[in-house]
Amino acid sequence: MGNGEEESVVRVEIAALSTRDSPRVLGADPDHVETLAAVQDELPPILVHRATMNVIDGVHRLRAARLRGDDEIPVRFYDGDVADAFVVAVQHNIAHGLPLSLTDRKSAAERIIASHPQWSDRRIASATGIAPGTVAEIRRRTSGTATVRIGQDGRARPVNGVEGRRMAAELIRKDPGLSLRQVARAVGISPETVRDVRNRLKQGDDPVPAPRGERDRTVSLAARRRAPAVRPAAERRTAPSERAAVVERLRGDPALRLSETGRNLLMLLNVHTMKQQDWDEIIKNVPPHRVGIVAQLARDCAELWADVATRMEGRVVGVV
């Protein structure tokens, strides 16, 4: 994907610009807009998608210019397609200015997976500023189904290495005269992998090698089968009445009740003493157009609490 940006700066009427496709899920930050509006010097040029006149980078600067009563703003244009323009918007907005929130970046990753399903998890992670593992988890929850993915180095690789080897084996059987590079290009795997597939076929072996540590995994599986069954999360969860009783006991601890951080903790914990029917009522009354955002925020909060639990347990282990 080329950057599609022109270095020349032109002045464009603010009324001609759109901000409808921003990667910021909750929109511009009013406080940041006011801060920029107070700057006396002219702000740096914004980046605009020429075909749609949509602002790729610089929504806060545009709002600040409007707040100051400006009629025009300096602009650099981007000439790529809409899908690539969104990727550029994300890249710019995690690199400088007011960074995208974790929710914004996860939402952007989901959209990029849909628009660029052939991109690798690592490439999307680099574009959105989140971990490759997080991208992989988002991909599992969505429907990206490319047969190959393009890595950061621009090379195509099969989504499934096993499938790539089987496709290479089929090509070699049909036309043994094909070179390693010809097969590699056709299937999207490395020439060395094709060489290994060809050697395995000559020896009468399966083109896909047996997984490493298969015996260890078999033993591990047997051990897991002997282990007691793990109850579903809903069954392991403490009842709201029990949580409320524990929080009430914590309120009686002066070390918590008489410190600001302790009171903050008690306030946060109190939210989770609500009954299930109260949560059901909250879920039912979230506006349909806000369900996705609220769901993502709920996941983020769950991740934060899981991190808190892990760090707390680490403190307990360290206590002498």
Rank of each mutant, 00 (worst) to 15 (best):
M1H: 11
G2C: 06
G4C: 12
G4E: 13
E5S: 03
R11L: 06
A15C: 08
P23F: 02
R24S: 05
R24K: 05
L26F: 13
G27N: 08
A28K: 08
P30Q: 09
H32E: 10
V33Y: 04
L36S: 00
A38H: 03
L43H: 01
P45H: 02
I46C: 00
M53G: 07
N54P: 04
V55W: 01
D57G: 01
V59R: 11
L62T: 01
L62F: 01
L62R: 03
R68S: 07
R68D: 05
G69D: 08
E72C: 09
P74A: 03
Y78E: 11
Y78M: 08
Y78F: 15
Y78S: 09
G80A: 06
G80N: 09
D81F: 01
A83Q: 14
A83T: 13
A85F: 00
A85R: 00
F86K: 00
F86L: 06
F86R: 01
H92A: 07
H96F: 07
L98H: 05
S101P: 01
S101G: 01
T103W: 02
R105K: 05
K106M: 11
E110G: 10
R111K: 05
A114H: 05
H116S: 03
P117V: 02
Q118F: 05
I124D: 00
A125M: 06
S126W: 02
A131L: 08
G133E: 07
T134D: 09
V135Q: 00
A136Q: 12
I138C: 09
R140W: 06
R141S: 13
S143E: 15
S143C: 09
T145P: 02
A146R: 06
A146D: 06
I150Y: 05
G151C: 03
D153S: 10
R155H: 08
A156T: 09
R157L: 08
V162Q: 14
R165L: 05
R166G: 05
A168V: 04
L171T: 07
K174E: 15
L178A: 11
R181N: 11
V183I: 09
A186N: 07
A186Q: 11
P191A: 03
Q203S: 14
D205F: 14
D206S: 10
P209H: 08
R215P: 02
R217V: 06
R217W: 03
A223V: 11
R225P: 02
R226T: 13
R226D: 13
V230K: 11
V230Q: 14
A233Q: 12
R237Q: 11
T238I: 15
T238P: 04
A239S: 13
P240Q: 08
P240D: 06
S241D: 15
E242M: 11
E242I: 10
A244Y: 08
V247H: 02
E248W: 07
E248N: 14
L250K: 04
P254A: 04
A255I: 10
A255K: 12
S259Q: 14
L265I: 13
N270I: 08
V271E: 15
H272Q: 13
H272F: 15
Q276W: 11
I283L: 13
P287N: 05
A295R: 15
D300K: 09
G318P: 04
V319I: 15
V319T: 15
